[in-house]
Design a protein around this nucleic acid. Structure first.
Lengths: 343, 343
DNA sequence: CTGTTAGCGCGTTCAG
DNA sequence: CTGAACGCGCTAACAG
């Protein structure tokens, strides 16, 4: 058993033809006879030839790879996004390098550097909570390498391609829903305002209040990193200071779950005296269903669409150039417990 | 702005030195003066030099990349495993290519082929439900490329490296736990017997029964693909035919959840007249907590350990050679609802 | 339709 | 300590 893999030269020598012909045959070029193709393919199989993409990529100076950067792989939203990306990339013939920033800017920077060194053909990114500027992403714009933001994007790259949900609208709908259920004192758990998505969700919250003649009270807006513990603490803080809060609009799912856990511990009947709405990514547990209405966003779909867009950009790069655009994904307001109420 | 990236030659020319020196400086070789190193590094930064890993990898004929194959990224167990792998790989300086087989053998074969073409330095794999033989993995053994199975492995590669949980023991513990709670008629939801893990879980089930003088009844073993719908259907089938089943040991979490959903729909008080134990990967919802005791396996830890082992194998490949071994990860029996009972 | 030539960008000899 | 030269495996360009 030889160590090194056989190369196109070895199969060329065995067939007494030139290695270029072998290369062309292997790539199913139209400029090779069917006959030689068959001979080459047969010999390749016989020798156990395995194409070396490293060499191929170097020569063509493309890596055939898409870089993906997410804050945390294990979060349900991102793992389903990745599933969608994988799906789209695989059928387009691209490999995918997945990296997680763990919400840290310095790590995100290192990752981006590594992706550049790997000469990725394009990059899909959902930025970390610490990412307030896009300096480390300039390279891609400067070198004409396609980049698509999804979900979390940078405010200072307005002209980049983005696949987003309409946060303002979704928040508006959520809060309107709460108001429709009779809530008047609605709190909002908000995230870092440097991130566009949280800013827009706050905006939608305010607009819904305004359109329903409810005075905006800044004290009802609690900003945090939106971890479960934050939601728990926020709910605690809220209920201890002013007891007349009757609704919560949480800017993500886990903080909403934190709030519910606190309320449950206090023995509150959540459906009765408190309505909660959150942006949902996680599969919401059934215990929470009766009280938590969610604005759902399909991670899989976002990933698939973002990757398709990126692949489009990669392919059109050489011909028509990159056309950046923003795609908005629909969200669905799911009122849980409604089936339970009926059943 | 130039199109192509600057190469070591350009920075060599700018400094009037040879490109080899630049290469060495960039790689922090001991055979270069500190002074030249500094000059090179400064010039590199100035020109915006970005090392081309494609070329580097081709030359060194290694890709610096680990291939990971899982059945489905969006499943919680695998996404946490991947998080662990990512973590370990990142700190060891490896990239990771993640691929999902979607439980299909033909897709798994294509993936493996692609990984080989990409000249991965090693591979981590949890095989699909359809994978009953390891023909497509022979290449790695034949070419001395490290391979580590985790969780789901191939029976016909006994000498490969593996990171597993002790399925037999865990199943034994789970069933013993049910018996301790007073169950005598315990059903088992089992998976494809071609997969070692399900075979071993069945084995543990049988042994626990035997050691407690309970006669094994094959009719209580329902084999399926263990989806949620399967669990639902199995529970239904079970309860409709023989009403005296008082315990279920499900070989995974989602099938257990399916069973619980069915029972709930029937208005059964699960904690009272039915005990359920399942292998847990998903974050189990609180609604289920009171009734579902789980055998928990930490995906993150399994991933991290598997990747560490693989990196070890990759590194020792050139020196001492690969030493295959199997590592068993501990599982934890978590009895949910116990806190609830106390509180 | 096929062969020849010349690199892609880097790392690694071997000299000096 | 540094320079010159070669080659990793493949493919683009140009011949024929």
């Amino acid at each position: 058993m030889k160590k090194g893999n056989p190369t196109i030269h070895e199969i060329a020598r065995a067939l007494n033809i030139n290695s270029s012909t072998v290369s062309r045959a292997l790539n199913d070029s139209s400029r090779v006879t069917q006959k030689t193709k068959e001979k080459v393919l047969a010999k390749a199989k016989e020798l156990g030839y395995q194409r070396n993409l490293l060499a191929s990529n170097l020569r063509r100076s493309r890596s055939n790879t898409i870089g993906v950067v997410v804050p945390r792989i294990s979060r349900h939203f991102f793992s389903s996004t990745i599933a969608g990306i994988e799906e789209a990339a695989f059928s387009a013939g691209f490999n995918v390098i997945i990296c997680q920033s763990l919400e840290a800017l310095d790590r995100e920077q290192r990752i981006v550097k590594n992706l550049i060194a790997n000469r990725v053909d394009g990059i899909l990114i959902s930025v970390s909570m610490e990412t307030t500027n896009s300096k480390h992403l300039e390279y891609f714009r400067d070198n004409g390498i396609p980049l698509v933001f999804f979900d979390r994007h940078c405010a200072d790259m307005p002209d980049a391609s983005k696949v987003l949900i309409d946060d303002r609208q979704a928040a508006y709908d959520a809060v309107t829903h709460l108001i429709g259920k009779g809530c008047r004192k609605i709190a909002h758990f908000s995230g870092p305002q440097e991130l566009r998505i949280y800013k827009n969700r706050l905006k939608g919250y305010k607009e819904a209040l305004r359109d329903n003649q409810i005075t905006y009270n800044p004290k009802l807006v609690l900003t945090s990193k939106l971890m479960e513990a934050d939601g728990y603490a926020s709910a605690q803080k809220l209920l201890e200071s002013s007891k007349d809060v009757d609704g919560i609009f949480a800017a993500n799912d886990v903080s909403a779950i934190g709030a519910i856990k606190y309320l449950k511990k206090q023995g509150k009947q959540i459906p009765e005296d408190m309505a909660i709405v959150g942006f949902s990514n996680e599969p919401i547990s059934e215990a929470i269903e009766p009280s938590l209405t969610t604005i759902d966003q399909s991670g899989f779909e976002i990933g698939k669409i973002a990757c398709d867009l990126l692949v489009d950009n990669i392919r059109s790069r050489e011909s028509t150039g990159i056309h950046n655009k923003t795609i908005f994904i629909d969200t669905t307001l799911i009122e849980r417990g409604s089936t339970q109420k009926n059943g």
